Amino acid sequence: MDTSERQTIGFLGLGPMGMPMAQALADGGFRVVAWNRTASKVGQLQERAPSVTAAHTPREVARGARTVVAMLPDLPQLEALLDGPDGLLVGWEGDGGRGGDGGSGGGEATGSQEPPLLVVTSTVSPVRVAELGSELRSRGVRLVDAPVSGGPGGAESRGLSVMVGGDPDDVERLAPVLAAMGSTVRHLGPLGAGSLTKACNQAVVGATLVALGEAVRLAQAGGLDVATVLEVLGGGLAGSAVLRQKGERYLTGDFSGGGNCRNQLKDHSIILEAGRRYGVRQPVSEVTRDLYAEVVERGGGDLDHTGVITVL
């Protein structure tokens, strides 16, 4: 039996991204043990992928799997699940090194020789994730940062771009897992490199959304047909994946769902933190951050990030 068909993977966080990512793993032949703070989300995942096993605590996830993927809003939410009687660490420490299915049989053949591996797939600080990796290594746990880009649509189609940072051996161990969720998987360097690359990605996405918002407002103010303008932009150098995926929102004015403005603001705080660390001027990212802060202050934090147009 192929490794991808027998390996058990834990999954934490079944939001708009985590739900299809966890399903992709189940559809790819992995045994998935899933936990979500709102337990009904696990039931929804089981409707989509009946083979998924529900866990009531992060500890149960760790008892069932030596490799755990986390898709949570930020590192503080993950760190809150590490310690305590129901935390991941006590689950791994109490595992006795069995791995796989927590001793129920049929786990990874090499689980007893492999340390627990935690994978962060959300957008987080490259500085802080490297610090967390050092802390966890002292407790026998390996950490890989593998943030993804492509949005819920990319997660549904298994077409995510995965930016990976970590020890080469850990990344090699994860290769089949990441390949099940994404079509482009690249190892960028040591722990934190994936998150720094994601910061670069979000800098471009955020600035592009602001520029598109300005263009749409300018077209509207000048009496142009916005649909035609966007078609022309898409056919030239101004065309982008952002425009292709998000253009319809400017025509309908529907900014519900999708990647939200609150997360875009968080991402730009990370971008600017990285810029300060490396001494890079970021005037565009500073303006972009301020505009998203204004959206959030006005109560639009849950709007899709195209909703930045509402303050232009």
Score class of each variant (00 low, 15 high):
T208S: 12
Q46P: 08
P16N: 14
I270R: 03
L188M: 09
G87R: 04
S157Q: 15
G166T: 14
S149F: 00
T208Q: 08
H268D: 05
K266R: 06
V280D: 00
E214Q: 09
R31W: 04
T184F: 05
G189M: 04
N260W: 10
D167L: 08
G275N: 03
G275Q: 00
E79A: 10
V61F: 10
V226E: 11
T306H: 02
T306V: 14
L132P: 15
V205Y: 01
G10R: 01
L88A: 08
R298V: 11
I270Y: 08
V52A: 01
G96S: 04
R142F: 04
I270H: 08
A203K: 01
G13Q: 00
L75R: 02
L75P: 07
D101G: 15
T8R: 10
Q46Y: 04
S112M: 15
R48W: 00
F30Y: 07
L291G: 06
R276Q: 11
M19P: 03
R98G: 07
A155D: 12
D27T: 06
V185P: 02
P115G: 13
Q23G: 12
P85V: 05
A22G: 00
S157V: 09
E297P: 05
L191N: 10
L312T: 11
D225A: 12
G235V: 06
A39H: 11
R173V: 02
